[in-house]
Amino acid sequence: MSEELNKTEMKSEDALGRMWDRCIADTIVKTGSGLAIGALASLAFFKRKPWPAILGVGIGLGHGVANCQNDYKALASPKVQSRSVSVSTE
């Protein structure tokens, strides 16, 4: 049956798996970036205090989770196509 699927069609479990893969990778990258920026800010401006790095991790993690929620909502929402119907009065 999988051979009969078009290249544009995808099983729902495959789409969900790809979404989770993107979600986890995106969250890891954003969290790491937040940690790096927070650590640099801590070294440069805040006399090596830990709160900028912790704040950066929190912001990065929050952005990653928010992107995951948006991806999931887009995947879960039904795609409705509107069609115009012409009615003949003859």
Rank of each mutant, 00 (worst) to 15 (best):
K30V: 05
K30Y: 11
K30L: 15
T31Q: 02
T31S: 12
T31D: 02
G32S: 13
G32D: 07
G32A: 13
G32K: 07
S33K: 04
G34R: 00
G34Q: 01
G34T: 01
L35F: 05
A36K: 03
A36P: 08
A36H: 02
A36C: 11
A36T: 09
A36S: 12
I37A: 08
I37L: 10
I37S: 03
G38T: 07
G38E: 04
G38F: 04
A39S: 10
A39N: 04
L40W: 09
L40E: 03
L40A: 14
A41W: 01
S42L: 02
S42Q: 05
S42R: 04
S42P: 02
S42E: 09
L43I: 09
L43Q: 09
L43Y: 12
L43W: 07
F45K: 11
F45G: 06
F45I: 14
F45C: 13
F46N: 13
F46E: 13
F46S: 12
F46K: 11
F46A: 14
K47H: 15
K47L: 15
K47Y: 13
R48Q: 13
R48W: 14
R48M: 11
K49V: 10
P50T: 03
P50G: 01
P50D: 00
W51L: 13
W51G: 05
P52A: 15
P52D: 14
A53V: 06
A53P: 00
I54Y: 09
I54L: 15
I54D: 08
I54G: 07
L55V: 03
L55G: 00
L55M: 10
G56W: 11
G56Q: 12
G56R: 12
V57E: 04
V57L: 12
G58T: 10
G58A: 12
G58E: 06
I59A: 08
I59P: 00
I59R: 00
I59V: 15
I59M: 07
I59T: 08
I59E: 01
G60E: 03
G60M: 05
G60L: 02
L61K: 05
L61N: 05
L61M: 10
H63N: 11
H63I: 11
H63S: 11
